[in-house]
Nucleic acid binder design. Structure first.
Lengths: 138, 138
DNA sequence: ACACTACTTTAGAATCATTATAAATTAGAA
DNA sequence: TTCTAATTTATAATGATTCTAAAGTAGTGT
């Protein structure tokens, strides 16, 4: 039904069998237009509310990490308290509102290309992440 | 003796009484020429080795956090596992070697000034942090 | 030097996110 | 349908960090 086939393909290509729990997670993560920033805790709460069943944390962790490994989700390190994930896997940066702990995408064109003038012998750059912390203006 | 007076001043200005435990921590953190990146766990181990006494974790956390609040240490969020601190409190960015988990300073001149072309109404920028992840080149 | 009070230290308990475990359930191939 | 390996789940384990409450110490005022 509907675009489940897309989700099934996403799961299969991540090495996961499509199960109803995982399809619920897919629906929640990938059936949306805007970027979605979330923690595992967020996801768990929303899933419980939307489906009226509880999907165990272990399943959610497992699924999210498989998607991350496959590249369907990006992990964003902000603080030690929680790990954030981002459904926008393109190259982009973030604002972090330190008053609300909200993450906001910066589009590619919002930040000039970063040039690093130093390199480490034997090492290559894997990613460049910019985090712009913002606070109330008063 | 020696430059303890500097440490005492650092402690006092951070709202802390100088105690022998805190002075040991100061010596370890601030009596060095190069930047020092560490976790609380690192610090604890080194302190035990250097002083042959154990300073309790609670004391180390308390002291490090007071220094951070005062601005004598910077906290760097890399992943949820551990929190890193940096004795270099100037404006600078970091390499993270994902093979070894080592942090390496980027000097100010190693990265072009970052210009953010978007602003959020009612918010002002508090900091801009760049993390360049590097990996083995093979 | 002494006493007193507030600040510190400490070990251990509590917390919280995340990971591991092991038994019951389910997907999918034969 | 049957069978086996993958999955789900509740719960336990882990590990970093924070809390607690009792014992120790700094430093002011005397």
């Amino acid at each position: 039904m509907e675009n489940n086939s897309i989700f099934i393909e996403k799961l299969r290509s991540s090495g996961l069998r499509p199960t109803k729990q995982r399809l619920e997670i897919c629906k929640l993560l990938f059936d949306r237009k805007k970027t979605f920033h979330f923690t595992i805790g967020d996801l768990s709460k929303i899933l419980k509310k939307e489906t009226n069943k509880k999907i165990s944390l272990a399943t959610i962790y497992n699924t999210v990490h498989s998607f991350k490994k496959k590249g369907y989700l990006k992990e964003i390190s902000i603080n030690r308290d929680k790990s954030y994930f981002d459904t926008n896997t393109s190259n982009h940066h973030h604002f972090l509102d330190i008053d609300t702990n909200e993450l906001i995408d910066l589009k590619k064109e919002d930040v000039d290309k970063i040039k690093i003038r130093k390199n480490l012998p034997g090492k290559k750059i894997q990613s460049i992440e910019v985090l712009v912390k913002v606070e109330n203006n008063n």
